[in-house]
Every structure is written in C-alpha cells, then in structure tokens.
C-alpha cells in the first residue's frame, strides 16, 4: 500500500491533573497503594472528582484535539476530505460523536466514520485513514478519545467495589488526540510505513468489558465495566513482543533501526513491566500514561504528540498496542522523511 503521512498531531486533556491524593480521597482508597501498584501519577477527568459534576463531553475533547492538529498541519479545513473517530465511550449512540466533531470543526459534505473500539481504535482509525488515502483522498483527520463520566464517579467505598471494577478507577482518565493524514509528505513529514491491525481473540474470553444500559434494562445490576486484570498481566507483555517482531519482520527492519518505541500504555507500572520484557534495544521509550492515565483510544495519539518534536529526518519509530477487550493486536511503524 502507498505510504500515507502524518502532517501534525493534536491533543486535549480536560481540566487540571488529578493526583493520587485526590484520587484516593475520591475512592476512599490508599494513595500509597496507588503509588506502589499503579505508579500513574496523574490523570484528567472531565468531571469534578469531588462532586461528580460533568464539565465536558467526548465531542469537546475530540474537537479541541482535531482543531489543534489541523492548525499545526498548515492545511485548511477545506483540505480535510474525511474524518475517522475511534472511541469506546461515545457521548450518544446517535448521532455519532464523529458527526458532532465534524460539525464543531465546520466540516461538511465529507465521509465521517466512527469506530467502536478500545485502545486499538486509534490504530484502526489510522488503518482506515490509510485506505481512504490509498483510494484517492488527499488529506483527512483521524481522532481517538475516551471519557469516563458514565462509568466512574466519586464513591468513597473502595472496599465494597469488586476488584475487577475497582481496578478501572485507578487506571483510567479522559483525553483525546488527533492526527492529520496526508497523501504527500507535509507538515511533520512522518511516513506511516506499516499498520498492524489484527483481531486474535477467537475462542478467548474478553479481558475488558464495557457495557451499556437501555430503557428496557436500566435497572439491571449487571456490571457496567470489568477488567480481567490477571489475564491482561499475563498476556499483554508477550503479545506486545509479538507485535514488535511482526512489524519489524514485515518491513525487513531490525531492532537497531528503531530510534523510538511507543509501548502499550496500561498504567505506569504495567507499561514498565511490558517494556522490561521486550527485546533489548537502544530505542527511546515514548510513554505518557504516568501523566495522563490510561485514556483508551487517545493514547497512541498522546504518545505521537510527544514523539513528533523528537523525530529527526530518517528516524524510525514503532508503536505497539494491545486491546484486551477481545485481544486485538495493533501497531504502526513510522519514519520521518
């Protein structure tokens, strides 16, 4: 497939960072435990951790990140020929958050797609954007974001929360990120050399559940979210290594060719554990989770935004992403041209 290029990135994180003291108070939990076992220092919520009052939506964050990416790209809105938005937590089922973001940006008369996915959605958006450009489009927006206001709230009863639900409170935060893709090298001139996007969950139990209620089952007591953190701890590190080798092998690159590595971002501690188990290489790690928390579909864009100023001509980078909801392997290979 013809290379596409990342011309620019943008990000949006709501409000002030929420530190572990505040998170512990919100949950009635132990700051020391969060420090030791999660390691993530701060995250952002589009709602007040003291009162639960919601200040902003996913559309707010995605529109902010997308507008920033377009401005940074040097392109005009008239140049944007498609929009793809990936999320696990849309503001409404319909209209899609993707169309709401298009409207806020002032876009009209263009294809707008929404991908329902966990953390691999950003890579799925990149994959779809690449296909659209291969099909003749010249430039477009890919966006990823997630928000927690429907799933987390101040409750101060950590001891009563089932462990597979409690873990989500200490991992996740809100955020969005975006990138402008172009057919020709423009802006930052980062070529997307390869995209890996492969579902490998046949016959496997989900690692992450995110449910929703409708009018007929709104009183159900089934859990809205649950994470099989033991399965994730066991399976994500080896899968991350396999993704790395798949990307390298497909391109004929060696480990020594890689200047930067963007590993999966689960929590500061878990990401460190994944990186320890990756093959030794000199590549610099580009992570954000310790500062941003796990922002789901925003994560690869937040990492890209940190990578962009570091990349020099000829530098190569690999991004790795494991979606544990149903075990999707995802990743990408980049080269500044």
């Amino acid at each position: 497939m013809t290379d596409v290029h990342i011309a620019a990135t943008g990000t949006a994180l709501p409000g002030d960072p929420v530190d572990n003291t505040t998170l512990a108070k919100m949950l009635g939990a132990s700051k020391e435990w969060i420090d030791l076992f999660v390691g993530t220092r701060t995250r952002y919520f589009g709602w007040d951790p003291a009162t639960g009052e919601v200040h902003g939506s996913l559309a707010d964050l995605c529109a902010e990140a997308a507008a920033q990416a377009v401005r940074a790209s040097g392109l005009g809105l008239a140049d944007i020929e498609f929009l793809v938005l990936a999320t696990a937590t849309p503001d409404t089922l319909l209209p899609t958050t993707a169309t709401e973001v298009a409207d806020r940006l002032g876009l009209d008369h263009l294809p707008v797609y929404q991908i329902q996915a966990g953390c691999s959605g950003a890579v799925q958006a990149l994959d779809l954007g690449r296909s659209l450009i291969a099909g003749g489009r010249h430039a477009g927006l890919v966006i990823g974001g997630d928000v927690t206001y429907r799933f987390l709230s101040p409750r101060q009863d950590a001891a009563k929360i089932p462990t597979n639900e409690l873990v989500n409170y200490v991992l996740f935060g809100d955020g969005a990120g975006a990138a402008v893709l172009t057919a020709e090298p423009e802006g930052e001139r980062i070529a997307v050399r390869s995209v890996l996007n492969s579902w490998t969950g046949r016959g496997r139990q989900p690692g992450q559940l995110l449910d929703w209620y409708g009018t007929t089952d709104r009183d159900s007591d089934r859990p809205m979210l649950a994470e099989d953190y033991k399965a994730i701890e066991e399976h994500v590190p080896p899968i991350a290594s396999e993704i790395l080798w798949d990307l390298l092998g497909g391109l004929g690159w060696s480990l020594d060719d890689i200047g930067f590595l963007l590993p999966p971002q689960l929590s500061e501690r878990m990401t460190a554990r994944i990186v320890e188990r990756l093959p030794d290489c000199a590549a610099r790690e580009v992570s954000c989770v310790a500062d941003t928390g796990n922002t789901g579909n925003a994560l690869p864009f937040l990492q890209l935004d940190r990578l962009v100023p570091e990349l020099a001509d000829g530098d190569r980078a690999l991004g790795l992403c494991v979606e544990s909801s149903r075990w999707i392997r995802a990743g990408f290979a980049l080269e500044k041209v």
Binding site: A29, S30, A158, A159, I161, T163, L166, K230
Partner: peptide
C-alpha cells in the same frame, strides 16, 4: 488473594 484485594483490605483496616 491479589493486589486489588490488598487495597480493599487496606481500606477496611482504615475504616
């Protein structure tokens, strides 16, 4: 027994 149950126990002890 796991790290999350340790957290719940810490909370119960503090309570």
């Amino acid at each position: 027994w796991d790290s999350l149950n340790l957290l719940r126990l810490v909370v119960l002890l503090e309570e």
